[in-house]
Design a binder for these strands. Structure first.
Lengths: 244, 244
DNA sequence: AAACAATCAATTGTCTGACAATTAATTGTT
DNA sequence: AACAATTAATTGTCAGACAATTGATTGTTT
């Protein structure tokens, strides 16, 4: 007779407990802002020590699923995940992926501009007056000749994040602006001469004008030019290999 | 004289330690696969107890930044983050965001098809024979009349994930196929009649043919039809409100 | 010498019990 | 009624112990 292999648990207790609670949250058995039982009670229920429960809770806290508050009315509460927090996570994960997996600069540029382009038609339709104002504010900053390269780059990233969010679709804005911001460290490696900055700011202004006129085709055209310009800068930056 | 407010530490020790180690990893001071000091040594260095160090390590492990191995040559090692793991995280975060923030079905559909569309031109250029084979395999499954609604839906999701990754850009494929997969629970709420399934499979086949012919325009056209079809199903599914 | 078994040592996983810190609620005092 | 002190519940941290795992070492047998 064949042996019935029990589903052996290689995972430690704290991992199992974390997974159990995570499942409860994801499946909606624990509502947002609901309070979990106290650590001592969880320990009793799961039949483990408090230290083990705490390690499980720390895991969940690291994923922003819960937060712990001290005091008499304290405890662990289910977090409402916000777009901003989630985007921060996405950005830092993307940056790690790029850093650890030797993503070529060209691939990153391609991904970023491809995704941004997909937002343009929607942004042209739905951009608000606030969006336009935010875009113009960034363009204004970019014309400042005393701006450091890093600040210029940060402004550039903000500009394109606003474009992504101007699509009016939070899900789309979250992912695309995340992709744009994830690229910031790579963009910081580029060197902008004064003429480059002027050209880029000009393109940004033209793009803003096109969005104001709800002219998606022109906006797309300007974005293509920006992509080409960025690729050119990336090529220039490339150090010649010393394969002697 | 103005009081010099010390940077008060509301964060607990374990959080601070986790952040310190995370920074070391992100900044590259700890290389991939490098071994961290043992828990006891970390506890000594930071001047805290082993339990506190362990909670910090659990946080990092929850973010896939490190893993812990037992045994003589064990310890905590810096993880190489893989695209698949990162995508799993992205998908589960997206699903939580959608669930907790009452994203309308239409917004989710719009985001998903918008992002997928941005991959199409690249996919038409770069699709491999393997990609085409994978696409055709899914279409074949979708023609099976005995398939459950859930399995049909899962195949549909896999089909579009392959399209996203056929763009040949890992960064783009990661984000777009993540977006597609994040939608699966929502798509599972749709009801497919037999005729719907046939129409969808037909569109999938036509899209595959277009990609094979490197015809991005036709592929885009078919994707637009799929989007329209999905929107129609979503509309039908909507239960009439009983606002009596 | 090679193969195998037993032991050892390092490390993480878990438990127990204790105390500190924080904070809401309660109680007491004016 | 307003304010102060106490209390109770809860998380945060600590110290020390033992179990479980696993690579390395050592010893034994063939």
């Amino acid at each position: 007779m064949a042996i019935e292999y029990q589903a052996i648990r290689k995972e430690g207790l704290s991992t199992q407990i974390a997974n159990a609670i995570r499942k409860a949250i994801v499946d909606g058995h624990l509502a947002v802002e609901e309070k979990l039982p106290s650590e001592t009670e969880l320990a009793d229920r799961f039949g483990v020590s408090r230290a083990t429960v705490r390690e499980a809770l720390k895991r969940l806290a690291a994923q922003n699923l819960i937060r712990s508050e001290r005091g008499a009315a304290g405890g662990a509460f289910v977090n409402r995940i916000t777009w901003d927090e989630a985007q921060d996570d996405l950005v830092s994960t993307c940056r790690l992926l790029i850093g650890m997996n030797d993503i070529p600069l060209e691939d990153a540029i391609e991904a970023r501009f491809t995704m941004e382009a997909s937002c343009l038609p929607l942004a042209a339709q739905r951009r608000t007056a606030d969006d336009l104002a935010a875009l113009r504010a960034e363009v204004y900053k970019q014309r400042d000749k005393d701006l450091s390269d890093e600040d210029f780059c940060a402004s550039d990233v903000r500009f394109h994040s606003v474009v992504a969010r101007a699509s009016g679709n939070p899900l789309l804005g979250f992912q695309v602006s995340g992709a744009v911001e994830a690229m910031q460290p790579l963009m910081n490696m580029l060197v902008y001469r004064l003429r480059d900055r002027e050209s880029i700011a000009d393109l940004h202004k033209a793009m803003t004008d096109a969005l104001e006129a709800r002219d998606a085709v022109t906006a797309q055209h300007k974005l293509d030019q920006l992509a080409a310009y960025t690729r050119k800068l990336a090529d220039l930056r490339r150090v010649p290999r010393d394969d002697g």
